[in-house]
């Protein structure tokens, strides 16, 4: 039996101190230990992007991290974006542009787009496509997602 490790992480502004097995994936820690099931897991080996979160402001895959690697980190999940009556501009844009069907991939797209738009407030079509090139969607065919990323940029600029 491997040693358990004490970790301190801030997730969506709340600080958590937990003892975890080193092999616990960060995605499972977020979903199972913290009950934040907005972060989805698709492939669990870094390919699909569904599990994307922000770690110290950078978009990363939570399935290719152990929870212990997040010790001391500031994490944001999709739950941090908006509420039902006060959506984040990115969420509004995804809704208005019909950028989701089943919605499984959406949290990963949103968190990827949040990081991207912070550094690139005015993406061209090409750039919007590139921004989401690490996320899979099996429903939409991507066109509306690209539209939504561009609309989100506009909304964020007007904010």
């Amino acid at each position: 039996m491997a040693n358990k490790v004490k970790i301190n992480v801030t997730v969506n502004g709340t600080q958590y101190e937990r003892e975890v097995e080193p092999r616990l994936l960060l995605s499972d820690f977020i979903r199972k230990d913290l009950g934040l099931t907005g972060t989805h897991v698709g492939c669990e080996h870094g390919l699909c992007g569904a599990c994307t979160i922000l770690m110290n402001g950078q978009a990363v895959r939570s399935c290719t991290h152990f929870a212990v690697m997040a010790d001391g980190a500031d994490i944001k999940t999709v739950e941090s974006l908006g509420t039902m009556d006060n959506l984040h501009p990115i969420q509004e844009a995804f809704m208005e542009k019909h950028a989701l069907q089943c919605g499984f991939c959406t949290p990963g797209f949103l968190m990827t787009a949040v990081e991207y738009l912070e550094g690139n407030p005015n993406p061209t079509d090409e750039e919007a496509r590139e921004a989401i090139d690490g996320n899979f969607c099996r429903c939409t065919g991507y066109e509306n997602i690209v539209e939504a990323v561009k609309l989100a940029a506009k909304k964020m600029a007007d904010h």
Binding site: G46, G49, T52, M55, Q58, A59, V60, R61, T64, H65, T112, E115, Y116, A131, D133, G134
Partner: peptide, 9 residues
């Protein structure tokens, strides 16, 4: 290399 999320780490 891969995608931004992977290059970040």
């Amino acid at each position: 290399i891969a995608h931004k999320q992977i290059r970040n780490r």
